[in-house]
Structure formats: C-alpha cells, structure tokens
Deep mutational scan, measured.
Amino acid sequence: KLCLVCSDEASGCHYGVLTCGSCKVFFKRAVEGQHNYLCAGRNDCIIDKIRRKNCPACRYRKCLQAGMNLEARKTK
C-alpha cells in the first residue's frame, strides 16, 4: 500500500487517509503550527518520496486533496 500524498510505503490510516509516517507528521505540524506555506512555482510541484520536502505548500495542498483531516483521528 502506498501513501496517497507522496507514494512512499504507507504505514497506516492517519487523519482519515492512507499515508506514510512522514506525511502524517508533516500534516499534524502544518495544521497545529498554522503555517502559511507559499509555493515558489505554480502550485503544481511534484510530491513524491524524493521531492516531498521541496515544497511544503504543494505537499500540504496534496494532503488536503487526499482528504486528511485532524479531526478524523478523534472519531475513530
């Protein structure tokens, strides 16, 4: 099974979405830290295992598009 954000090996369902541990922690920190990420490109950066750290804005956008939600952990 692959992470729906970066296509690395998924470690489980986190915040409602099948993700790897790295994307799970990234999403939690992004939401709780209330980061205002900005993409230096055109908001279409490739997010994969190798390049997932290059653009936090696009990675966060991809987390949201996949359906990640901090509240999902509280309902399970």
Rank of each mutant, 00 (worst) to 15 (best):
Lys1Ile: 05
Leu2Ser: 11
Leu2Lys: 15
Cys3Ala: 00
Cys3Arg: 01
Cys3Tyr: 01
Leu4Thr: 13
Val5Ser: 00
Val5Met: 02
Val5Leu: 02
Cys6Asn: 01
Cys6Leu: 00
Ser7Leu: 11
Asp8Phe: 04
Asp8Glu: 10
Ala10Gln: 06
Ala10Asp: 04
Gly12Thr: 08
Cys13Asn: 07
Cys13Asp: 12
His14Cys: 06
Tyr15Asn: 13
Tyr15Asp: 09
Tyr15Lys: 05
Gly16Thr: 04
Val17Lys: 11
Val17His: 03
Leu18Glu: 09
Leu18Phe: 12
Thr19Asn: 02
Thr19Leu: 05
Gly21Thr: 10
Gly21Pro: 12
Ser22Cys: 04
Lys24Pro: 06
Val25Tyr: 06
Val25Pro: 02
Val25His: 15
Phe27Gln: 00
Phe27Ser: 02
Lys28Asn: 08
Lys28Trp: 06
Lys28His: 12
Arg29Glu: 14
Ala30Ile: 08
Val31Arg: 12
Val31Glu: 09
Glu32Asp: 11
Glu32Lys: 13
Glu32His: 08
Glu32Arg: 11
Gly33Val: 09
Gln34Met: 13
Gln34Thr: 08
His35Trp: 07
His35Phe: 13
His35Met: 13
Asn36Arg: 11
Tyr37His: 06
Tyr37Arg: 04
Tyr37Trp: 08
Leu38Glu: 13
Cys39Asp: 01
Cys39Ser: 00
Gly41Arg: 14
Arg42Ile: 08
Arg42Trp: 07
Arg42Asn: 15
Cys45Ala: 01
Ile46Arg: 11
Ile47Arg: 03
Ile47Cys: 03
Asp48Cys: 03
Asp48Ile: 02
Asp48Met: 02
Ile50Lys: 13
Ile50Tyr: 05
Arg51Val: 08
Arg51Asn: 10
Arg51Gly: 13
Cys55Leu: 00
Pro56Ile: 04
Ala57Gln: 04
Ala57Ser: 11
Cys58His: 02
Arg59Phe: 03
Arg59Val: 01
Tyr60Ile: 07
Arg61Val: 15
Arg61Tyr: 07
Cys63Pro: 01
Cys63Ile: 02
Cys63Lys: 01
Leu64Glu: 13
Leu64Trp: 10
Gln65Glu: 08
Gln65Lys: 09
Ala66Ser: 08
Gly67Ser: 03
Gly67Lys: 03
Met68Leu: 05
Met68Pro: 00
Met68Gln: 00
Asn69Pro: 04
Leu70Pro: 08
Leu70Lys: 10
Glu71Thr: 07
Glu71Gln: 09
Glu71Gly: 12
Arg73His: 06
Lys74Gln: 15
Lys74Asp: 15
Thr75Gln: 06
Lys76Pro: 13
Lys76Cys: 15
Lys76Arg: 14
Lys76Asp: 13
